[in-house]
């Protein structure tokens, strides 16, 4: 059983190698206030007082995107033997992760200040909405097209 949406198997070891580097990159940005020393970053935005926030923003954005990519490589690459049981476990794990994520957000919303609320909503609602759209499209709309083609 082949799932074309999964990344190649080689992505998993690459992801595991890059993930610690991504964490070090993130830590260096937030713990040591590091920014990339690239000349091109300093030519983009120079504030009137001579300071430059773009290098910090670029470092921060890149660090998060890099971390996200490494996590995707680990999470969504093929197993050595990619069979139906593995796919069933993957689906259940994904579902459980969404439940736990939502539960954690609900808990944090009660504990955190109200300014956190929009951020939480933006994070959790689109995932569920996109799932509903994709699932219903594949479940109900696509089979109708298939029926008309086969008859």
């Amino acid at each position: 059983m082949k799932n074309k949406l999964l990344l190649p198997r080689i992505c998993r070891p690459i992801g595991w190698v890059l993930f610690p580097l991504a964490i070090i990159n993130l830590a260096s940005r937030y713990v040591y206030d590091y920014k990339y020393q690239l000349p091109i970053l300093y030519k983009r935005i120079i504030l009137p007082d001579g300071s430059n926030t773009f290098a910090y923003e670029f470092t921060e954005n890149f660090a998060w995107i890099f971390t996200l990519f490494t996590l995707f490589m680990i999470a969504f690459s093929r197993q050595k033997v990619e069979d139906e049981y593995v796919q069933s476990i993957r689906l259940n794990s994904l579902l459980l992760s969404i439940y736990l994520y939502a539960a954690a957000f609900i808990l944090v919303m009660f504990l955190a200040e109200s300014s956190f609320f929009p951020f939480a909503i933006i994070n959790i609602i689109p995932q569920v909405l996109i799932f509903i759209l994709v699932f219903n499209f594949r479940m109900f709309i696509m089979p109708r097209f298939s029926k008309s083609q086969s008859s």
Binding site: M1, D83, E84, Y85, V86
Partner: peptide
């Protein structure tokens, strides 16, 4: 049968119903 050993183990233990 081109599956993992874990799959056979799960089927034998009646934890998974094969296709």
């Amino acid at each position: 049968v081109n599956v993992s050993r874990q799959t056979i183990n799960a089927i034998e233990a009646a934890k998974y119903v094969p296709s």
